[in-house]
């Protein structure tokens, strides 16, 4: 079982201490298809849980990526600027979007673990 947590909006988080790396799930990248552009937040930006943090564009559509928890952006994955297809090839690894310093680690309790998220996406089919 992985250490990832998931939101209903198909973001994943990998938590280390009081910071978290955020991306979109493998299920989400598959639904979107070929990713051609990712708009990342500015480093230092304070984002509230549920607010728009990034935009991911596939060939056919633009979709918003929400912050699953509140925090300040400490890093963004600039590799996505030149190679947005990393989101397709390695959604939960090299295809990460941004890192947050968490305001409140208790917010993590509202997220799903991988098994629960797997059941959730299966229910969407």
């Amino acid at each position: 079982m992985s250490d990832l947590k998931f939101s209903k909006d198909h973001e994943w988080l990998r938590v280390e201490g009081d910071s978290a790396t955020v991306g979109i799930s493998d299920y989400a990248q598959e639904q979107l298809g070929d990713v051609v552009y990712v708009e990342l937040p500015e480093i230092g930006k304070q984002i509230t849980a549920g607010a728009q943090a990034a935009v991911v564009e596939s060939v056919k559509a633009a979709s918003e990526v929400y912050a699953p928890v509140s925090g300040a952006v400490t890093d963004v994955n600039i590799a996505l600027e030149d190679d947005p297809a990393l989101v397709n090839s390695d959604a939960t690894g090299e295809g990460w979007f941004f890192k947050l310093k968490l305001d409140d680690v208790a917010e993590l309790d509202k997220l799903m673990d991988e098994a629960v998220y797997g059941e959730f996406t299966a229910s969407l089919e």
Partner: peptide
């Protein structure tokens, strides 16, 4: 994140 059914925006 919004997961699109892209056909919606095509027509």
């Amino acid at each position: 994140m919004l997961v699109f059914v892209a056909g919606v925006e095509m027509g």
